[in-house]
């Protein structure tokens, strides 16, 4: 156990934390926006799988990770468009549509993957990092934090952007009103359907980025069911974050650390059964839920389709 605090271990832990935490962060931010608007994005897992698949194809055939991320964003947007039409416009049950989307995402991407890459299993080249001058030479954090690809920094900036969006713009005010008391938004002369519709699209786009990050940046290839519950963790993060993006970020990287623990421990030769270590993130989710679920605050109208009374 001597190597547990060695620079190698910490460096591996932190870079693994970023790789696993980024998709959670992006999807968690997306889920936050959707939930604040009153639409439960239960289909997160579906968004992410579609986006991971599309992102992989984009990066593979487009030859650039940026094209991959863009393809993922568009795939997430498209899936969200479907959800927005069904749940917001046609007012279908959000749980049913969400589960449907998860199953669709799992099934469709598995089949497409088998048909397309069943024999070849191509890999993407790893995404080059952006070495920050000076800082990237620091011990431990130099390699793990200050040599990350640009998209990492974009993700960090997104925390702030979503925070400002929700707190200090009129759009954010509308979104939060749509989730808390849609009648009030309606009475204030703002369309509830329109507000929720756009919130779901933004939510899907962010989740799409998260999914694409998973296949394009984190792993470099795609395999069926690769999200492995990340979509659900994003939902939990959004609920525990209570609409505050900073807490979603903190939570995402904490879960990321749990995921990367297994690899980091192996790296320094500590022999822990991998199955046990792989359980860590889920144990962490459960612990967090038990500890903080009482304090989780959900918008009052979450999951309730809005219909104006007596119109």
């Amino acid at each position: 156990m001597s190597g547990i605090l060695s620079p190698e271990f910490l460096s591996a832990l932190i870079s693994g934390m970023v790789l696993a935490g980024m998709p959670l962060l992006l999807a968690g931010l997306g889920e936050t926006i959707g939930e604040q608007a009153g639409v439960l994005g239960l289909g997160m897992e579906g968004y992410m799988l579609f986006a991971a698949y599309a992102g992989f194809n984009g990066a593979l055939y487009g030859g650039s990770p940026w094209l991959g991320l863009l393809a993922g964003l568009i795939a997430g947007l498209a899936a969200a468009l479907l959800v927005a039409i069904l749940c917001v416009w046609l007012r279908l049950d959000q749980v049913v549509v969400g589960i449907g989307l998860i199953l669709l995402g799992e099934g469709l991407t598995s089949v497409l993957h088998a048909v397309q890459f069943g024999d070849t299993s191509p890999r993407l080249p790893s995404v080059p990092g952006l070495a920050i001058p000076g800082l990237s030479r620091l011990p431990v954090v130099g390699d793990s934090v200050f040599s990350q690809p640009v998209i990492f920094w974009l993700g960090i900036v997104l925390i702030l952007v979503v925070h400002l969006l929700l707190r200090s713009t009129r759009w954010g005010l509308k979104v939060r009103a749509a989730g808390d008391r849609p009648e009030a938004l309606d009475a204030a002369g703002v369309g509830v359907t329109r507000t929720r519709f756009f919130a779901v699209l933004v939510s899907g786009a962010l989740a799409g980025l998260g999914g694409a990050y998973l296949s394009v940046v984190s792993s470099g290839f795609f395999w069926p069911f690769m999200t492995n519950g990340a979509g659900f963790m994003a939902i939990v993060l959004a609920m525990l974050g209570r609409g505050r993006p900073v807490w979603v970020g903190v939570g995402a990287f904490l879960f990321g650390a749990c995921v990367s623990m297994a690899t980091a421990l192996q790296l320094v030769g500590v022999d822990v059964p991998t199955d046990a270590v792989f359980m860590l993130p889920f144990l962490a989710v459960m612990t967090a839920l038990v500890a903080f679920a009482r304090r989780s605050y959900l918008p009052a109208a979450l999951g309730v389709p809005y219909r104006r009374e007596g119109s």
Partner: peptide
């Protein structure tokens, strides 16, 4: 009541634009 209970008075008014 048609106000958002979790908003401040000012935020409720700003919602109207």
């Amino acid at each position: 009541p048609t106000l958002v209970p979790t908003f401040t008075v000012l935020e409720n008014l700003l919602l109207v634009g």
